[in-house]
Simulated assay, not measured.
Amino acid sequence: MEFCPTCGNMLQFELPHMGRPSRFVCPTCPYVCQLENKVKIKRRQHLVKKEIEPVFNSDDMKIGGAETDATCPAPNCGFGRAYFSQIQIRSADEPATTFYQCLRCEKRWRED
């Protein structure tokens, strides 16, 4: 997306026509920007996915979390006790999010 340096409006793209190269033109003033027909990629940059850090890690849940009756959703566990912590991660008029960690298998899950 390009903008006109004269008036600030968004430039419109025009395809090449009868020997004229493609160009950007301003719809309100006479500004025209000619484009090269060849596009060269100078460098490819590979994106690396960042590791997501948990809101609560295992140590935080064991130290600051309280125990409650909650059934673990892990298919092979189903244990009925878990640590839990609540935090307000959405707007104030929404309920708090509860994070759980199973006491047996240490699986973590949340309920909004």
Rank of each mutant, 00 (worst) to 15 (best):
G78N: 08
K62H: 06
K38Q: 11
L35K: 09
F84T: 00
R81K: 12
P21H: 09
I87A: 04
M61D: 11
A92Q: 11
E14P: 00
C72N: 04
A82R: 08
T28Q: 01
T68H: 05
P21R: 15
I89S: 12
P95C: 02
P27L: 01
P5C: 01
C105G: 09
Q34P: 10
G64W: 07
M10W: 02
M61T: 04
Q88Y: 00
K49R: 13
Y31S: 00
K107Q: 14
K62F: 01
T98Y: 05
V48S: 08
S85I: 15
E106A: 10
F13P: 05
K42F: 14
T98K: 13
S85L: 15
M61P: 03
S58P: 06
W109R: 05
L15P: 09
E2D: 10
E53C: 10
M18D: 15
R43N: 14
K50A: 00
V39I: 14
F56R: 10
T98Q: 09
K42R: 05
Q101S: 14
T71Y: 06
R110G: 09
M10N: 02
C102W: 05
C33L: 10
E36Y: 11
F3W: 02
F99Y: 13
K42C: 13
A96I: 04
R43K: 15
P5H: 01
D112S: 03
H46A: 11
T68V: 10
L47Y: 12
A82D: 05
R108S: 10
C77P: 15
E51W: 05
P73T: 01
R23F: 01
T6R: 10
M10K: 12
T71W: 06
V48N: 11
C7V: 02
D59M: 10
R104K: 14
T97G: 09
Q12R: 14
M61F: 12
V39F: 12
H17I: 00
A70I: 10
K49I: 04
P73Y: 02
R108G: 03
Q86Y: 02
A74F: 14
N57V: 02
A82W: 01
H17M: 01
K42G: 10
Q86H: 04
Q45A: 11
N37E: 15
V39Y: 12
G64P: 01
K49C: 11
D60G: 07
K40H: 12
